[in-house]
C-alpha cells in the first residue's frame, strides 16, 4: 500500500479538477493519507487563486494620468529650451562666420546698435537688413539654416511620438 501512494503530480492534477485514473481513484477510496494530501493541495490551490489583497487608492488611474501629463509638460519645456539654445548658438556661429576671424566686441556692439536703431525707428528697410546680415545671399542662407534646424528638432523630438502610431 505504502508504495502506491499518489504522486505529487497526480495530487496537484486532481486538486485542479482532473479525474484520477482508475487505480488512483481506487487508492483514494482506501487511503486516508492520500485523501488528506489531496485536501491540502486543494486548500493550497484555493489560497493561491485568492491572490494578494491589493490596496490602491480609488483615484489611482487619475494619478497615473496626472503623473504622465506632468512628465510630458516638463519634457516639452525642455525641448523648447533646447531649441532656443540651438537657435542662439546658430546666431553666434553665423555672426562669427559673417565677421570672420576679425570679430571684436566693438563690432558686435555696433551691430547691436544698428539692430536697436532699426527696431526703435520701426522701419526695417532692405538696407537695414543688409546692415544686419552683410548681403542678401547670406541672409537667405541664414533663414534656410534656421528653418533646417527647426525642422530637424521638430522631426527628432516633437513628431517622434506620433510617427509610429
Amino acid at each position: 500500500m505504502e508504495l502506491s501512494h499518489l504522486s505529487e503530480e497526480m495530487l496537484q492534477a486532481c486538486a485542479e479538477g482532473e479525474q484520477p485514473d482508475e487505480p488512483s481513484a481506487e487508492h483514494l477510496k482506501t487511503c486516508a493519507h492520500c485523501r488528506q494530501q489531496l485536501e491540502v493541495s486543494r486548500m493550497l490551490l484555493r489560497s493561491l487563486q485568492a491572490g494578494p489583497d491589493i490596496h490602491l487608492p480609488v483615484d489611482f488611474s487619475w494619478k497615473v494620468v496626472a503623473n504622465i501629463e506632468e512628465r510630458t509638460e516638463s519634457r516639452k519645456a525642455w525641448r523648447e529650451w533646447l531649441m532656443y539654445g540651438a537657435l542662439g548658438l546658430c546666431c553666434i556661429l553665423i555672426t562669427l562666420y559673417y565677421t570672420g576671424s576679425n570679430f571684436t566686441f566693438e563690432m558686435f556692439s555696433s551691430w547691436m546698435a544698428d539692430v536697436w536703431r532699426a527696431k526703435s525707428s520701426g522701419e526695417w528697410s532692405a538696407r537695414d537688413l543688409n546692415t544686419l546680415f552683410g548681403n542678401g545671399y547670406l541672409y537667405l542662407a541664414y533663414v534656410a539654416f534656421l528653418l533646417w534646424i527647426y525642422d530637424f528638432l521638430d522631426q527628432r523630438f516633437v513628431q517622434k511620438g506620433h510617427r509610429h502610431a
Binding site: P52, I54, L56, S61, V64, V65, I68, T72, G161
Partner: peptide, 21 residues
C-alpha cells in the same frame, strides 16, 4: 499614441488589478 493621454486612463483602469497582483 495619437496623444490622448486621458484615453490611457481606460488602460490603467482595466489592468491595475493585474499589475497590482
Amino acid at each position: 499614441l495619437k496623444g490622448d493621454v486621458s484615453a490611457y486612463k481606460l488602460i490603467v483602469d482595466g489592468y491595475q488589478n493585474l499589475v497590482g497582483h
